[in-house]
Amino acid sequence: MALVAANLCYTYAAGTAYEVPALLGLDVHLECGDLLVIAGTTGSGKSTLLRLLAGLLRPSSGTVGLDGSPASDRRSRGRAAMVFQNPESQFFAESLLADVSFGPRNLGAQEPARLAADALAAVGLDPDTFGDRSPFTLSGGEARRAAIAGALAMRAPYLLLDEPTAGLDRRGRRDVVLAIGRERHRAGVAVVTHDPEEFLPSATRVLALHAGETAFAGSVDELLANPSPYLEAGLRLPEVVMAQLFARGRGLPVGAMEFEPEAAAARLSHARGTRS
């Protein structure tokens, strides 16, 4: 059981004078328990890739399969839930509970209201406080989390999120990262972001895109061991990691990289003590 894309290519306006190749030969494998970080600068093709994985676009060549069926097939309906950039622009119902329960209700789920309440709680919005609120009265951070709850409520086995933390404050980002992390026990999660800082420590795989091609694909450990292709794709690693990379570049024996500042400080001060 997996979401598998093989040799995926996509060209916008194919066959016209305006055709723009957006993706060239990408491979993706996502299964339950995974957190796949798809990183890339603006225009690298990462949102196009996510739409292909969700079955919203058909590949120009290559395949996307959801548990053995094509992603655009009817049988795949409801199996990959996608959260778009600025999902808060998609609210329509009078109450948050009605809005979040729309997806599961539409898919014929039992107890859509309970699924909606659980999803709201999962993103840190108490359903008793927020359930009756109009989605149009929420703050920016609340609205984003509510929109993500709409996708969580569908209980899809694959969750595809486009820039879920952009524009949120630290608390909002932490709530979103935790909520997404909790979904991994029952879903495969792919997150598209230009700023993967929060997601890297818990990512199982990283796919970095540059101009529609794979600049890096591998585990976080592999990324930190050889960060050049990732950095050359215009992406940044967290400053704490960059400090360790610079220190290593200076010849200090830093060893494995740490994401947490305290652990990084211990490692750097140890490296400083052991150099010859």
Partner: peptide, 11 residues
């Protein structure tokens, strides 16, 4: 306040 300046100080 930058990764480079912190690494520099450690070095």
């Amino acid at each position: 306040f930058t990764a480079e300046s912190v690494a520099e100080a450690v070095w």
